[in-house]
Write a protein that binds this DNA or RNA. Structure first.
Lengths: 201, 201, 201, 201
DNA sequence: CATGAATGAGCGTTCATTCAT
DNA sequence: AATGAATGAACGCTCATTCAT
């Protein structure tokens, strides 16, 4: 079955889905509500998506894909390591902010649909690539062994994800700002410590 | 409406709810299934809990309360700081393991019911108390300022929570074991670094 | 899942189903309409029947079962062969009359659910038993070989079934009466011919 | 609304309708599927037929019309009575075979749309015409009075129709063959008996 | 207090039909 | 005349909740 080409309408549906899934979670979100927000008839949703599951899947996956793409772009840039970290921080938090509505309701269904683990590991892989490349350029020293690093990366990534997801919309901007600063200061500590320990070697 | 006194039956319902909510998530869990597992009639659930929301609320809160109680006990013990850290690690992961079934399906509803933030902050408060007390006894030096520490604690706590919640039951034991080791090694690094930097002062 | 014991209500639902399935056919019959006729809430239907298919199945099968039972009773009676034929005619047509509402809409779904062939063959088997027994008692001579007889029995049975099913309710009584007479006269011809040919042997 | 002149396309739609109605029955057949098989857009169906009901009506009627035409041709031929019977048998069963897909799902809708009775009676009328003419030519003797004969004809016609309709596609050829033989043997018995009784007069 | 049958609002989904292109 | 995306009413079915027993 071929899908119509009206990408604008498809995106209106995805935006509406993002909003509604975010507001009430997957199970309580209704196609009728999503259609109402997208300003179309309920039946039209099924012209663009096979069923509720696929709509959710596409909604979530589009956010992950954006993250992967951005991280890839940062990695391939000519920026210095600290600049890359800074860009990553800004990009990641901006995406989290945009995805905030859905984060809260997405974990359980994402996991059930196997959308979470695959994307998380892919994200971590790219992050490690970035570190490897920077180390090869002599921009950083290694602090931990592979496993330890992976553990910390995963834990921090999950930690940020969950922290954003539990903020209510009202305080979202302030929280993002706070995390931004905290991450920046933390990075500075790491860079300092890295330099210090690197110098000690 | 006054509540009946049969606490044994109330707990049977809570256990059944923990199991069913965990297996299928809040939205897909049915009162009928919970009642069947608790070996009572569906209507009886409403003698002990006002509605499905309250049943979920009580189910989740009982797990948190257990965590708070355990952490309090550890804090008040006479153990050394490394021992306390070790006990905390073991206790926390054991509870996470027991709560695993429900973790996956609980975030969105927990947040919506404001069960998450309050309990998380209370947990972090206790954790900080533990650090303060240990520092006062000269067992540790401070590495970061209050805010930085809070950020790291919250991020790591959330990170562990989310990591456990996305593991499927089959790999749960292996994952718990892995996290246990990773945390232990990480703690050792911190202790080493703490000692090193402390010595520098 | 055990079913409640309120047989009166179950039968009210079956009667309503008979009426509605008969009026509009399986596909266009709605659970809501059946529930309305049975004077219950739509959901209640699902307390007594698993789904629409099972409700239809039970509705149709109950009629066939009644026919099998009646034919069995006639066979085992002490009546003479002509009396048995007469009783069979009356019983069969009476049942067809009662089932008339559903006949029209039932063929296609019955066949799809494999309700038709099995019951038809069972009916024909019993009919043949009746002939065999009567022949053993010397009440009839055989006119045709087994296959020819089976063919005629099946064709006539199907023919009567279809004829009744295509009569509209308004003319049902007259049609039943007409078929009754026609069958009676036909039987008489057969008996005459049987006697004639029997006498010739 | 005037109808377009593209008869080839109209027939493609009718053929597709015959196939789809036959495969799944009236209610489950969709205009989209019929359009897909006919290789046109769904909307185009409504250029040639007012709605789904009319499309079904035309589909079924075209089959009946074919039967009437064929029977008429046989009647008007110069063949002898036994040859005519034989041709009728062959023609009828061949048409039933071709119509098999639709038979199963058509009774209820056909009756509801009053397509069945009229065509059946017209078919029986033609059949009787054939007998009358053959009797006038002295080819057969009469066995029964008008009413008795009409009853038997109608019953056997309906019986054959229903028997074919309940055969699944897989066994259709074998069943047609079987009915062919049974009818032939039965006709022979009738002819024999007719001759015997005729000779007695 | 316990029961469990009854309730009925509301879900995801389908599809005959329309109509702007 | 042909298209096919859009429509929205209506379906089968679920299940939190109630209440007569």
């Amino acid at each position: 079955m071929s899908r119509p080409q009206d990408l604008a309408k498809r995106n209106r549906i995805l935006d509406a889905a993002l909003q509604i899934f975010g507001e009430v979670g997957y199970a309580k979100a209704t196609i009728k509500d999503i259609a109402r927000v997208a300003d179309i008839a309920p039946g039209t949703v099924y012209t663009y998506f096979a069923d509720k599951r696929e709509l959710f899947r596409e909604t979530v996956q589009s956010a992950w894909t954006e993250l992967h793409t951005e991280l890839d772009r940062i990695r391939r840039s000519d920026d210095s390591y600290p600049t890359k970290l800074s860009r990553l921080r800004r990009t990641g938090l901006a995406l989290l902010k945009r995805m905030h509505p859905i984060l809260n309701g997405m974990f359980s269904e994402s996991v059930r649909m196997d959308l979470f683990n695959v994307n998380l590991e892919r994200f971590l892989d790219q992050l490690e690539e970035l570190f490897m490349e920077s180390r090869e350029r002599g921009e950083i020293h290694e602090l931990q062994d592979h496993r330890q690093r992976r553990f910390l990366l995963r834990t921090i990534a999950c930690g940020l994800l969950l922290q954003i997801s539990i903020v209510d919309a009202e305080h979202l901007d302030a929280e993002i700002e706070r995390l931004h600063e905290d991450l920046e200061r933390n990075e500075q500590s790491w860079l300092d410590m890295n330099r210090m320990l690197g110098g000690n070697r």
